[in-house]
Design a protein around this nucleic acid. Structure first.
Ligand SMILES: NC(=O)c1ccc[n+]([C@@H]2O[C@H](COP(=O)([O-])OP(=O)(O)OC[C@H]3O[C@@H](n4cnc5c(N)ncnc54)[C@H](O)[C@@H]3O)[C@@H](O)[C@H]2O)c1
Ligand SMILES: NC(=O)c1ccc[n+]([C@@H]2O[C@H](COP(=O)([O-])OP(=O)(O)OC[C@H]3O[C@@H](n4cnc5c(N)ncnc54)[C@H](O)[C@@H]3O)[C@@H](O)[C@H]2O)c1
Lengths: 214, 214
DNA sequence: AATTTAATGTTATATGAATAACAGTAATAG
DNA sequence: CTATTACTGTTATTCATATAACATTAAATT
């Protein structure tokens, strides 16, 4: 079995979100061009992604929404088997926690860590904040496979090392520190990089070039 | 003049960040392999990016850090000419504001908008929060070119439309709503998509495949 | 029953990005 | 003063992704 392309996986996540909305509103089937429109992409892209995950639609009714949601769940998150931890529950960490808990993702947030004595022992969204000193122990014990890193930059490398030692399988790094982890999938995201990219393409002279090309 | 590749622009942003640190610590020149190491990429990638922006290093001393920082500034943000606004100053908006103000980006955050009467008129990081009803007027008057969108999902499309009508050139969209804007560069980012992507590649069976391939 | 239609499924091509290969050069060592 | 070294700069290739072209099929229409 071959791995799916990264971009396809990203879109599967988005397909699922809008499909959940459609299902909730009573729709049972959806055409590729309808799904495409909801995400502002092309129908071909949708069909190709769905082909890659081995699902089939019916010719005159499109795809069965419930089936597709289930299949995406099996592919992405084992339908609720994977556990997530947030390390560093400051401004960003709390914003992320609220957002995740308000969403329908099947990933279960099951631990939070910090080093601030005022935070340790308190509940965040119903989840107990642990002392980061017990990070390795708890990650192993609870079988957490994914970590969201939102500690101050100075601690990023140290925590990342502890996470890999604890056997973590995926890290989503929001610190502006480039990490190099072995044995785990690493995703880095930084607002400033994103914003400066927007700035470049939004510069009037560049915006003009982009526009004329369309 | 041709546009730079998106990925190159992203890396330029990251080069600048680490170069600013290096410069602050007294270093004047840097080799491609040193810069590469700081970001865990290859030296070839660094040289290629630098070639694309038309900069040259000296053969035995590498690149002049100050010059490179200046050039990246000219390319990305016109060295402080572009202005940024945040729409929706809730949990996420405030986390972003703090982060941007604590950074060295040359993009100047110069307006904040919300629709909550308790927030309108108060200062966030020294910046006055305006009533979102005056969005178009103020964006035009202040010549804001870039907007960060962090309002509740239900308002995303409406605000995006107002932004483009106001002549915005770039939008960084953090709402989980797929937008379709014309005349502006759009960048969308969603934590859940990122996290579910990590979940897929972190699934034990997939992690095994990834590892064996290296 | 044959034909048209409107959808899906698959293969081929084009584009974008990263990597690799190689060419060029100034300082240094012999 | 020639050869070596350790870099930078450019071109070629490979790999990933998106797009486009084409093939297929079940229902609806005539
Ligand atoms: N990637 C982005 O887009 C983005 C946006 C905003 C902030 N950030 C980054 O995210 C991180 C957090 O930002 P923030 O605004 O929430 O900062 P913050 O200071 O509000 O929160 C940091 C939290 O980490 C805790 N902490 C400190 N040291 C720790 C340790 N060793 N172990 C565990 N917890 C520890 C602190 O007690 C605090 O609760 C920073 O690195 C910041 O630069 C990134
Ligand atoms: N992309 C991500 O990774 C990510 C992460 C967290 C949250 N989010 C999204 O970002 C958005 C904000 O999240 P949050 O946690 O800060 O929510 P929040 O409720 O804390 O903040 C929303 C803010 O927008 C304001 N607002 C509401 N309607 C408005 C309008 N019409 N015009 C202007 N302001 C308005 C509210 O008063 C509030 O201050 C939501 O869409 C959320 O889903 C995205």
């Amino acid at each position: 079995m071959k791995l799916l392309p990264e971009k396809t996986v990203e879109r599967l996540s988005q397909y699922r979100r809008v499909l959940q909305r459609e299902l909730a509103s009573g729709t049972e089937h959806i055409y590729s061009h309808e799904l495409a429109k909801l995400l502002h992409i092309t129908p071909v892209q949708v069909r190709r992604d769905i082909m890659l995950i081995g699902h089939s639609g019916t010719l005159r009714r499109g795809y069965n929404i419930a089936d597709l949601i289930d299949l995406i769940g099996i592919i992405i998150d084992c339908s609720g088997q994977q556990k997530v931890a947030i390390i560093g529950i400051g401004d960003l960490g709390r914003a992320l926690l609220n957002y995740l808990q308000g969403s329908r993702t099947k990933l279960q947030l099951s631990a939070v860590f910090d080093n601030n004595p005022d935070k340790i022992g308190t509940l965040y969204g119903g989840i107990l904040c642990h002392n980061v000193e017990h990070l390795k122990k708890i990650i192993k014990r609870e079988n957490v496979t994914i970590a969201i890193l939102s500690v101050p930059p100075a601690y990023a490398v140290e925590i990342a090392n502890k996470l890999t030692e604890a056997g973590i399988l995926g890290i989503l790094n929001y610190t502006p520190v480039s990490l190099d982890v072995k044995g785990a999938f690493l995703e880095q995201y930084d607002v400033i990089t994103s914003l400066e990219k927007v700035a470049y393409f939004a510069k009037p002279v560049n915006a003009a070039i982009m526009h004329q090309e369309e």
